[in-house]
Design a binder for these strands. Structure first.
Lengths: 231, 231
DNA sequence: ATGTCCAACTTGTCATATAAGCTGATGATA
DNA sequence: TATCATCAGCTTATATGACAAGTTGGACAT
């Protein structure tokens, strides 16, 4: 997997010229691994639509627009600027899906799921000093709701977005105050679910996402300013 | 890839007992291929979250709920009933995303894209006697709009749903009348886009999806009846 | 009954060889 | 000169045999 990471970095950085990716032999020599490993690496990149591989033909890098921007391997090496753009696009998606997921969940959620959500809120409020750990439980909370909505397609979509979510930590340096606010909003969502109130859950989720995004934008602006000052 | 298909079929059918998948050696013997091929097969299934593979441990089948139901390899072997459920869930997703995508596209669509859409409508109206070919252009039409909305995440999501869309052909046996209606609706969407009218595009897309789904449900019901009569 | 250790099994990697498919250049033909 | 068939040299695909590295369950000693 280290080979895949390095190769991805080289491709993302535009190091490899006009669509021609290194062949299996090139990779195995450059990274000092066997052809088997080089081959598997290329297959991984192919599954992410980063390259095309076919018998007899050289491996070619596919147009950037067709890459799988939800893959952690790719996100890892994207420039911060691109990640910022993607987070914006991710937010657009979440606004469209998550409020509705919350409403659907409210109609069919089980007591066990509610218990788990309650647990996670407790854990989050205990972790407000540790943003990374907080974020992890945060994701689990959102996925739990998604799962409760009982739609495998939507579940899969939200699931595949998880890595981009963690990449947001590269942008925002969530302050404890923001996390306290988030916990309060999670509680609101939770209470609407307990009441089996779809409209309430939808509204609470919408508020939560909107606030989240404001924080992200504010953080990004601060970063830009800091960067400008450093220049 | 044939090996992957066969193995997927066996796993989907529940043929393999309680989480224990065949090892690399089992596969290479059963299918008469080398260990290299068996290994790549398992890696593919692992990338779809169908199995877990780790050094030293046997390969295990993961819980069905965590499988990637958007993968063509998996969809291919799912029982018709499950595919029907998934199409329902897919519709839920499309209703949430596509009207908004159409609205976004209306705000930023280029003349070249409009030309391509116009082309595709022409092609579709010429293909109303050939449902399979029609469906292909249909997808291209929807993806074109998605691309025009300029959101890589949403684009990727709609793209990964394309295989499930083609699987709908296993359920619905679209009648020419339905296709004629679809062409009319596509034209409505197109005209709203030409007018750069987000609200109009959103409404037209919503109508289109709703009608599509009605057709799907009606077809499913007919099939159920036919099946009952056969019994 | 309990804990330690190891043998058997499994996946990960390597090296070498051969099959199968593509591409561009060479050269024959009109 | 222009066009087309052919083929050498690349590439990926697969096979085989060997060893490294990690896991597991049971034998064994305590």
């Amino acid at each position: 997997m280290q080979v895949a990471a390095h190769l991805t970095r080289r491709i993302v950085s535009g190091d490899i010229e006009d669509g021609r990716a290194p062949s299996e032999l090139d990779i195995s020599q450059e990274f000092g691994v066997s052809r088997v490993v080089a081959r598997e690496t290329l297959k991984i990149l192919a599954s992410l639509d980063i390259v095309d591989v076919a018998q007899g033909r050289r491996v070619v890098v596919r147009p950037r627009a067709e890459w799988d921007y939800l893959s952690p391997l790719l996100i890892e090496w994207l420039p911060t600027e691109t990640v910022g753009e993607l987070l914006q696009e991710l937010h657009q998606m979440r606004v469209l899906l998550e409020p509705e997921l919350a409403a659907m969940a409210a109609a069919s959620i089980t007591d066990e799921t509610l218990d788990r959500l309650s647990d996670e809120i407790d854990r989050m409020s205990a972790l407000e000093a540790d943003p990374d750990a907080y974020l992890e439980v945060d994701h689990e909370f959102h996925m739990e709701i998604c799962r409760a909505a009982d739609n495998r397609i939507l579940d899969r979509i939200m699931y595949s977005a998880r890595w981009l979510g963690t990449a947001s930590r590269r942008i925002t340096n969530e302050a404890p105050a923001g996390l306290r606010r988030a916990t309060a909003e999670h509680t609101e969502i939770y209470e609407a679910l307990v009441a089996r109130d779809p409209a309430g859950a939808r509204a609470a989720m919408r508020r939560h996402l909107s606030n989240n995004y404001s924080t992200l934008l504010a953080e990004k602006e601060q970063q830009t300013k800091r960067a400008a000052r450093r220049r």
